[in-house]
């Protein structure tokens, strides 16, 4: 089986890359494009460590074939900060010590960003429900949820100030 050419807009830039038809989007991102921020936790859609936003939808990139990304628009954890300027979620994860080993963190930030961008008034219950597809084996989740709540408040006040 030969490699296929895939063209996708990733973090705002058009990328062309070769991928085996049986490789996942996660493998393509990490191995072909060097975007190693997305992690493989479980590799079967349970843990969310590989989360990316594809065509406006939060997906597990381990459950998407690389070839399915042809023509897609994708945002990975590498596209979350604006240059040196951390996203409020990234800043808040640091300030609230919402990570320990860090493997789940890129997925949590990509997922939480998707939530806060679509539902800026999400409450804690909604956050916990939405983030049920992201597993963390270190923190016990409370610090993560606290960081997301604080980031929501920062994002709301910034949006209000505009």
């Amino acid at each position: 089986m030969s490699k296929r050419i895939v063209s996708a807009t990733i973090n705002g830039e058009v990328n062309e890359f070769l991928v085996e038809p049986y490789h996942t989007l996660l493998e393509a991102l990490r191995n072909e494009l060097g975007l190693t921020g997305s992690k493989e936790g479980c590799g079967n859609g349970n843990c969310g460590a590989c989360n990316v936003v594809m065509n406006g939808q939060l997906v597990n990139s381990c459950c998407v074939l690389g070839v399915e990304a042809n023509g897609a628009t994708i945002t990975t954890i590498e596209g979350v900060a604006e240059g040196e300027q951390l996203h409020p979620l990234q800043q808040q994860f640091l300030e609230d010590a919402a990570l320990q080993c860090g493997i789940c963190t890129p997925g949590f930030i990509v997922a939480a960003k998707q939530l806060l961008e679509t539902e800026q008034d999400a409450d804690e219950e909604r956050m916990r429900h939405f983030l049920a597809g992201n597993l963390c084996r270190c923190t016990g989740y409370d610090k993560i949820i606290k960081a997301v709540i604080n980031a929501r408040d920062v994002m709301r006040s910034t949006a209000g100030a505009r």
Partner: peptide, 9 residues
């Protein structure tokens, strides 16, 4: 059915 991520697909 599954998580938000699963439901998207």
């Amino acid at each position: 059915i599954g998580s938000v991520q699963i439901q998207a697909r």
